[in-house]
């Protein structure tokens, strides 16, 4: 009975985390389209429900009732596995995100490495989908995406090292608590900019959406997908974007800490502050999508390897020497 009790409690906790994440993914798609529309002086989705808030639910309903078409020459098992993997990996990463000092599903020692590992696994959903479709456009899209995600992971990893040098722990809660005096966005501002751009590339957002560039590759790795399987790719992608925003908020914007530790501000619960910061970063993501034209592929690779990698490595050396010289290195 004890085991059952524990399992029920954990399932309850997981549902309490996952359902809000999924609902906010649906809302964030609506927000993305609205921001995109407003920048271009359009209205965007505004018909279904108040301000069009229910648009994503209507879309989801449509996807559920559509027929799932599996190409005859595809590799069926892997074809079906690919969207499932994308979706699962995008959701399991949320297990370690701290919403306040105690509100975290799994407060593990290596939280930041866990998120990094899960986001680096995300490339498999795309590669598998592209390869299993057994046609040219998806394959080209998945090859592009694999190269792109692997290159930008390197710079994200080095940026994380910068933050870890200042914290001295891999635990996400420790990272947030280390920013009580000053948010890392101030001393590490160049790293924040690089993190933001690399996160755009890592989640295949415009201007780095080469894997699904509709002008060249139809829809990239998603070309052969339809119905609910397409919707799962789409949900996984947006869940990943939210995760990257959450990671940015935790690493640079102080996570669930309130900006000023004074009376009216510290009454607001930490979860709300984190959600507010995630939304702020997401609106920046949406603005970038509306404003910036798409990169060319060789420029993308050049930016990743020849500019971001040396820059972030240099900053690691700078941070380490600064901390060492002024005796600020964190102790165990």
């Amino acid at each position: 009975m004890d085991y059952l009790n524990i399992i029920f409690q954990e399932v309850y906790k997981i549902l309490f985390l996952l359902v809000p994440v999924l609902v906010s993914v649906a809302m964030i798609v609506w927000l993305d389209r609205r921001v995109w529309a407003f920048v271009q002086k359009r209205q965007g989705p505004n018909v279904v429900g108040p301000f069009g808030l229910l648009q994503s639910l209507a879309d989801a309903l449509k996807y559920i009732f559509k027929e799932i078409i599996i190409p005859a020459s595809s590799n069926k098992v892997i074809f079906i596995l690919a969207p499932i993997i994308t979706m699962t990996l995008a959701l399991i990463a949320w297990a370690v995100i701290p919403f306040s000092e105690s509100q975290v599903l799994a407060n593990i020692n290596v939280g930041i490495l866990y998120i990094f590992a899960v986001s680096s696994l995300g490339v498999y959903g795309i590669i598998m989908g592209g390869w299993a479709s057994n046609s040219k456009y998806p394959f080209l899209g998945s090859i592009r995406s694999a190269a792109q995600m692997v290159s930008y992971e390197v710079s994200i990893g080095i940026i994380i090292i910068n933050v870890l040098l200042c914290v001295g722990s891999l635990n996400l809660n420790d990272i947030v608590l280390a920013q009580q005096n000053i948010w890392f966005i101030i001393p590490l501002f160049p790293m924040f900019v690089i993190y933001f751009i690399s996160a755009l590339a890592e989640t295949n957002r415009p201007p780095f959406d080469l894997p699904e560039a509709e002008a060249e590759l139809v829809a990239g790795y998603q070309t052969e997908y339809s119905g609910m399987m397409y919707a799962m790719f789409w949900l996984g992608e947006y869940a990943n974007i939210l995760l990257m925003c959450a990671l940015g908020a935790i690493l640079f914007l102080g996570g669930w800490l309130s900006p000023i530790d004074l009376y009216p501000f510290n009454l607001i619960p930490g979860a709300l502050w984190l959600i507010f910061k995630i939304l702020l970063l997401f609106i920046l993501f949406a603005l970038v999508k509306a404003i910036v034209p798409r990169y060319r592929y060789d420029q993308l690779m050049r930016l990743g390897w020849k500019i971001f990698l040396p820059l972030s490595l240099t900053y690691v050396i700078l941070t380490a020497s600064y901390l060492f010289y002024f005796n600020l290195l964190p102790t165990i």
Partner: peptide, 20 residues
């Protein structure tokens, strides 16, 4: 847990992608 995560990041996230 550190070795496990590094295993995931290095082997699964990078080396196996290149194999594939």
């Amino acid at each position: 847990e550190f070795l496990g995560m590094i295993m995931l990041i290095v082997y699964v996230g990078a080396v196996a992608v290149l194999f594939l």
